[in-house]
């Protein structure tokens, strides 16, 4: 925690009382600053990952054309984002719906696997059960190093699925060893800003896939 980040603004405070008006102003300015940082990270990520965005979009569109489904996985907040991406695919605000399955949404399955075989296999076993050639596995990891994500990617590739990894800096390892078909890396030292940008990346991949599907059908 940073306790000194705004302390310089309130030199008259001994900690006993807080000037709430100044604090609220500072909180509002902080919110605006985080928005600026988040939007800048989104722009720089889109620019830096342009070809990977297109590759992932083509993979998603190809799966949709052939009746494939997207399996989506992530841990913690990224599990929530995985559920959001699965919801976007099956019930989009516009465009064509696509079959999707979030692997991080059913606590019965997740706790059964975690309890019986360990957390490293909670996604891989489901990939093995559901995944078929023509499907896509989409993984979301702010680190890019989560073991259960890496095991799921390996299982997917053995099963003939195309894989898309949305990661933080750890995605460099995936790029280096070729363990994922498409890797989109978000580079920041803030987990929060990474996560927001990862969702923006997924939405952009989906939007580009939709444009490809429209071009073919029109």
């Amino acid at each position: 925690m940073s306790s000194d980040s705004t302390g310089f603004l309130y030199p008259f405070l001994g900690g006993a009382a807080v000037d709430e008006t100044a604090l609220v102003d500072d909180l509002a300015a902080s919110a605006a600053g985080k928005r600026s940082v988040s939007e800048a990270l989104r722009s720089s990520t889109f620019e830096a990952t342009r070809t990977h965005l297109d590759g992932a979009a083509e993979a998603l569109a190809a799966a949709a054309r052939s009746g494939g489904r997207a399996l989506v996985a992530g841990n913690g907040g990224s599990a929530a984002d995985a559920a959001g991406f699965a919801a976007l695919l099956r019930e989009p605000p516009w465009g064509e719906p696509m079959g999707s399955l979030c692997l991080a949404e059913d606590p019965t399955i997740l706790t059964a696997l975690a309890n019986d075989v360990g957390t490293s296999l909670i996604f891989a076993r489901q990939v093995g059960a559901h995944g078929k050639p023509g499907d896509v596995l989409v993984v979301i990891s702010t680190s890019g190093r989560s073991e259960n994500i890496l095991v799921a990617l390996a299982t997917a590739r053995r099963g003939g699925l195309v894989t898309i990894a949305i990661t933080g800096e750890g995605g460099d390892d995936l790029l280096a060893d070729g363990s994922s078909d498409h890797v989109i890396i978000v580079r920041s030292d803030s987990v929060h800003r990474i996560q927001e940008t990862q969702e923006a990346v997924l939405f952009e991949v989906w939007a580009r896939a939709q444009r490809r599907l429209e071009e073919v059908s029109s």
Partner: peptide, 27 residues
């Protein structure tokens, strides 16, 4: 690892929603 910081914004003015969020956050 990052920290929670209230780094003052440079160039970005808070929206009405962000000002309301600030009040609500303190509460």
């Amino acid at each position: 690892m990052s920290t929670v910081s209230a780094s003052p914004a440079v160039g970005a003015a808070p929206t009405d929603g962000e000002s309301a969020l600030a009040v609500a956050s303190l509460r």
